[in-house]
Design a protein around this nucleic acid. Structure first.
Lengths: 132, 132
DNA sequence: CGGTATCCCGCGCGATACTG
DNA sequence: CAGTATCGCGCGGGATACCG
């Protein structure tokens, strides 16, 4: 029953389902942004670091390794000095990038009303510290 | 420049941009699943708890409070005994649910190849403990 | 330049028990 | 039934320093 929700025999609501771990992987701010950043084409490590404002070297590498491991990103090393490494989305990654970018657009489009909703919620719960 | 990426004047790549905090809120496994679970209509607390396999009471409440605060979920309390509380998506929430559900579908659809990619990655890095 | 390696803090989140 | 309260730990992730 309810197979209309899971036409592929996988069910992300189940902890033990592989698709659940995929969802866990996707549920990361840096994964979102990294995939979106690579959407227009390949980028170097430093270019990514600059585009992903606030990311630390550690998190950048870690995020890219996860994406590479899962087949969403391809890593290419050029044996030159100084080193040059480029990252690009695989086809699978590009496929996903379309969806993630919609989420990003949605976040940007609806940021104002969500911000307002948060302000209203704070007001209701007596957080009027700025009332002075 | 690059305004084609941010047609609404917001830029999720910037830490201080409100849309960035929205993306952070969305980057949560339980937010994903809760919104998807409510997609077909309103549900009671217990129904959600059963559908979201493995969620603790604490995380369920916390997630619902965040979604309510941000205007994605509406909470309705019925003053009866035993208590009855129902949750449903607002219009904004339903709007988002379409996108999140695509991600979930994508995760379920591509779970096999990602699982394979992980196995291959493990093999390469010498993790052949199961080779016996 | 493109990474690792280390340290360590904060808090996310789970487990459990209790209340109206 | 639908939550709160409390405790605790694991680890995500930031800061920093170092390497090829």
């Amino acid at each position: 029953m309810d197979s209309s929700e899971t036409p592929f025999g996988y069910d992300a609501f189940r902890r033990t389902c592989p698709s659940h771990t995929v969802l866990e992987m996707l549920a990361s701010k840096w994964v979102y942004l990294t995939v979106c950043a690579l959407r227009r084409g390949r980028l170097r490590n430093g270019e990514l670091a600059r585009k992903l404002e606030g990311i630390t070297p550690k998190m950048l590498t870690q995020t890219l390794r996860v994406l590479e491991r899962d087949g969403l990103v391809r890593r290419e090393v050029f044996p030159v000095i100084p080193p040059r490494v480029e990252y690009e989305l695989t086809e699978l990654g590009q496929n996903l990038a379309g969806l993630l970018n919609q989420i990003r657009s949605w976040a940007e489009e609806h940021a104002p009303e969500i911000k307002d909703a948060r302000v209203r919620a704070s007001a209701v719960h007596g957080e009027m510290a700025a009332a002075s």
